[in-house]
């Protein structure tokens, strides 16, 4: 029982972190049709920038400076890069961001070195918030929930309650119409791209010391964020949110499952021997296949419902 409660909390924290990354990506993807491969790199840049700012000024300053910096980088990428390759079609844009991913990874390695940097949780938040059945729940995880929850609320308010949100939502589905009405659609694109990068940077600031700040952090988190976006569906923040939480929970809960599918059916009196290939697969315990589950779910989703959980367009 206690395992379930603790895993629920941890799964939620991880899910919220995924959401911070995926929300920006899904907005960019659904609005501009660009699958931004460099999105996780911005997350990494956010973590490294936060590490440097923390050393120079302090963590609280980093919490503001690093995301703003990432937003600015995002805006620059959109204006000077994406916009120029845009007329060559989506493949060119895709390749452009794919190249950026490698440049960022190599750049980070050259500037900060190949080894992890000691970006640590600020001392003010480095204590146990409460204890659940003898296990500490670190205050920093609570802080992460606070930040990501606050972010969720503010994007939702921004998109549904303000004029700019109205235009963004309109541009998501009818860019030509919005343009005809006299709105500057390219500027809306830049805003959304910069906003997405801001969120990724913010995720980097709070995720960098929750995990480890190292040059591989982008490639480690990148694929799962794509899974979230595809699974959640295009153009739907709600779908993205639900998908993030589902993926966070899957990754946390699959670990604690010791039984396999074979054990499950054994309960019904059917025993599966592990001497053939299929039998062997069915006998692998859940904790060992867990990390593959998100990808399996994504494939299943694409087969059954290509538009994703709550998407309004096909992927």
């Amino acid at each position: 029982m206690e395992i379930v409660l603790i895993s629920l909390l941890n799964g939620f924290v991880y899910g919220m972190l995924l959401f911070m990354l995926a929300s920006g990506l899904t907005l960019i993807f659904s609005m501009m049709g660009v699958l931004n491969f460099a999105h996780a790199s911005i997350y990494m840049l956010g973590a490294y920038a936060a590490f440097d700012v923390t050393r120079l000024i302090g963590f609280w300053a980093a919490l503001i400076v690093a995301p703003v910096l990432c937003g600015a980088i995002g805006a620059a990428i959109e204006i000077y890069g994406l916009r120029r390759v845009h007329h060559n079609g989506h493949i060119a844009e895709l390749l452009f961001t794919f190249g950026l991913f490698f440049i960022f990874e190599r750049g980070v390695q050259m500037i900060w070195g190949m080894l992890p940097v000691p970006y640590r949780v600020p001392p003010l938040l480095d204590f146990a918030l409460f204890r659940v059945y003898g296990s500490n729940f670190p205050a920093y995880r609570g802080f992460m929930l606070l930040i990501s929850g606050g972010m969720l609320l503010s994007i939702w308010l921004l998109l549904t309650r303000t004029r700019i949100g109205l235009i963004i939502q309109a541009a998501l589905t009818h860019p030509n119409m919005v343009s005809s009405l006299g709105h500057n659609v390219p500027r809306v694109f830049t805003t959304v791209f910069a906003g997405g990068c801001f969120l990724a940077g913010l995720a980097g600031v709070i995720g960098g010391n929750y995990q480890i700040t190292e040059p591989t952090m982008a490639s480690a988190l990148g694929p799962i964020v794509f899974v979230v976006v595809v699974f959640g569906g295009l153009g739907s923040l709600m779908g993205c949110f639900i998908a993030s939480i589902i993926m966070g929970m899957i990754q946390t809960f699959s670990v604690i499952i010791d039984g396999s599918i074979a054990d499950l059916v054994k309960g019904f009196g059917v025993s599966i021997p592990s001497d053939n290939l299929l039998g062997e697969i069915l006998n692998v315990p859940g904790s060992r296949v867990g990390p593959l589950l998100p990808y399996a779910l994504m494939i299943l989703m694409l087969l059954v419902r290509p538009r994703g959980l709550m998407g309004n367009r096909d992927t």
């Binding site: 206690e2 895993s7 799962i224 990754q251 604690i256 990390p291």
Partner: peptide, 19 residues
């Protein structure tokens, strides 16, 4: 047996070890 360099959060394992 954990999959090679795939897990990003080990807290679930820690809970299990604790139990």
């Amino acid at each position: 047996m954990v999959p090679l360099q795939r897990i990003r959060d080990f807290s679930a394992y820690i809970t299990k070890i604790k139990a």
